[in-house]
């Protein structure tokens, strides 16, 4: 049992890492990866919401009538998103302002509903917890990787610390919308090269 739980956790870190292997949740991936700080903040929020919603959905999976399960999942997810929203406003207000509407938009992030429907509604609580944590951490890693590239080239900094020194001319294409698309596309391409044939 422990072994299976570990497996569910680890698969989120590589085999099914969103948004590369599981092409879901692209909008926040593009929008919040201007800086590593934003990416980590978003990642934490997703880990919390995904883990909690997976556990709750899995715990009540036999009580929900089939026809309204999606509506119930959405209520569960939206509840945890609102909790994150309130807590972030209370404790990390500047980060909350930076992430803006992308915090409430976690509700419609396909990863959450996708995991609730495809995994948590069919598996036990422990496995769902492992799955939520794994996918959440994988997503955070992916966000941070993309954000590192964009921040280093776009601002010349990493987590607000200068990398190239003052003479560096920032390549601001990277932190604008087009740069986000191209950068993610190329990262996806690199990931595909590693895929087993």
């Amino acid at each position: 049992m422990v072994k299976r739980a570990v497996n569910e956790f680890v698969k989120g870190l590589w085999e099914e890492i969103p948004p590369f292997r599981l092409v879901l949740g692209l909008c926040p991936t593009l929008a919040v990866t201007k800086t590593v700080e934003n990416a980590l903040g978003m990642g934490m929020a997703v880990i919390f919401v995904l883990t909690c919603s997976n556990v709750i959905v899995s715990a009540v999976r036999n009580l929900i009538p089939k026809q309204v399960r999606i509506a119930c999942f959405i209520v569960v997810i939206a509840t945890f998103v609102t909790i994150v929203e309130l807590v972030m406003q209370a404790f990390t207000y500047p980060l909350y302002l930076k992430l803006g509407i992308f915090i409430p938009l976690i509700v419609v992030n396909c990863i959450l509903l996708g995991r609730a429907e495809a995994f948590a509604s069919k598996n036990g609580v422990i496995y769902s917890l492992a799955d939520g944590l794994g996918i959440g951490i994988g997503y955070t890693l992916a966000l941070s990787a993309l954000a590192s590239i964009r921040e280093i080239f776009g601002y010349g900094t990493f987590y607000h610390i200068s990398v190239f020194g003052p003479s560096f001319k920032p390549f601001s294409f990277m932190v604008k919308a087009p740069g986000a698309f191209v950068c993610l596309g190329l990262m996806l391409c690199i990931m595909n090269m590693f895929k087993k044939k």
Partner: peptide
Amino acid sequence: PKPLQDTSIGLVTAGMLSLAFF
């Protein structure tokens, strides 16, 4: 090229389109 196919080339194309909208 094979690794670029599908979503990957789609995103790069979207980037070009976004550049035009800039």
